[in-house]
Amino acid sequence: MAHIIVVGNEKGGSGKSTTSMHIATALARMGYRVGALDLDVRQRSFGRYLENRIAFIAREGVALPTPTLAELPRDVEDMDPLSAAVGALDPDHDFIVIDCPGSHTKLSQMAHTLADTLVTPMNDSFIDFDLLARMSPEGEVLGPSIYAEMVWSARQLRGQAGAGPIDWVVLRNRLGTTEMHNKRRVGEALTRLSRRIGFRVAAGFAERVIYRELFPRGLTLLDLRDIGTQQLSMSNIAARQELRDLLTELRLPGVKVQL
């Protein structure tokens, strides 16, 4: 069966689509068969990212490893569209990457119950920390957030179905080099909370202009040399290392990171 990676939270602007695209494309570049689903039926950032990639390949005549983008089927009798889409991808793919919208939807809730690996990107601030837990003004954790409770419910449903545990990874995106005091406080709070509600913490992507520049062409950091960009800036080299570190930290079954 395909290993399902769900990228989700209930807050926009945390880098879910960028994270989904780079994970999916990195796995494809390593030779894995990767399916992709975008559950944000309004914004479709992940879907548009992949469509931009397909158009770039056709226009430039270059060969770039590309995940298979699937659409949610319509008018499926006696079956929900997400199960139908995953069922169609499952036989021919090693991994399926599902990007969820930045809000609570029924499809997103269902996707979380399918997750073998759940990746939750968050901006490195206490504003986004509220996604995971309610805090007092003094910085004490008062209890899990609605989103954390949904993940807990998904874990229970998977346990009842004998589907195995969810490996939950919280990704600290947009880590800055300034405001070190706040960065340390967020890190300490995440460490305490991770023990309480059961997730792992990983460093994600720093704030870099390159991510916004790559989207219109459907490219990722790993494609730059393939399209003739021989001289990579120090920022681009650092960003590629961030991606390698992320893939290593995800501990996906059978994956030896070679990028």
Rank of each mutant, 00 (worst) to 15 (best):
residue 3 H to P: 03
residue 5 I to Q: 02
residue 9 N to V: 06
residue 13 G to V: 03
residue 14 S to Y: 03
residue 16 K to R: 04
residue 17 S to F: 11
residue 17 S to E: 04
residue 23 I to C: 01
residue 26 A to R: 04
residue 30 M to F: 06
residue 30 M to R: 00
residue 31 G to F: 07
residue 34 V to K: 07
residue 35 G to K: 02
residue 37 L to F: 09
residue 42 R to V: 11
residue 47 G to P: 02
residue 47 G to H: 08
residue 50 L to I: 15
residue 51 E to F: 15
residue 59 R to Y: 05
residue 62 V to K: 00
residue 63 A to Q: 13
residue 69 L to H: 09
residue 70 A to V: 13
residue 74 R to A: 13
residue 76 V to I: 12
residue 84 A to Y: 15
residue 84 A to V: 13
residue 85 A to E: 00
residue 87 G to N: 11
residue 87 G to C: 01
residue 88 A to I: 15
residue 93 H to S: 04
residue 93 H to L: 03
residue 93 H to C: 04
residue 95 F to R: 05
residue 105 T to D: 03
residue 106 K to N: 15
residue 111 A to H: 00
residue 112 H to E: 10
residue 116 D to N: 10
residue 117 T to S: 07
residue 120 T to F: 02
residue 122 M to S: 06
residue 123 N to E: 13
residue 128 D to S: 15
residue 131 L to R: 00
residue 131 L to K: 09
residue 132 L to E: 07
residue 132 L to S: 02
residue 134 R to D: 01
residue 138 E to C: 06
residue 139 G to V: 00
residue 145 S to D: 02
residue 150 M to S: 12
residue 150 M to I: 12
residue 150 M to L: 11
residue 158 R to Q: 14
residue 169 V to K: 03
residue 172 R to Q: 00
residue 173 N to T: 09
residue 175 L to M: 13
residue 179 E to D: 08
residue 182 N to F: 13
residue 187 G to F: 06
residue 189 A to D: 10
residue 191 T to E: 14
residue 198 G to N: 14
residue 199 F to L: 06
residue 200 R to Y: 12
residue 206 A to Y: 05
residue 207 E to Y: 10
residue 207 E to M: 15
residue 209 V to A: 14
residue 210 I to P: 04
residue 211 Y to D: 00
residue 212 R to T: 12
residue 218 G to I: 05
residue 220 T to A: 09
residue 220 T to G: 09
residue 221 L to K: 07
residue 225 R to L: 11
residue 229 T to G: 14
residue 234 M to H: 14
residue 236 N to P: 09
residue 237 I to L: 06
residue 239 A to W: 02
residue 243 L to C: 10
residue 244 R to I: 13
residue 245 D to N: 00
residue 246 L to V: 07
residue 246 L to F: 12
residue 249 E to S: 15
residue 249 E to L: 13
residue 256 K to T: 15
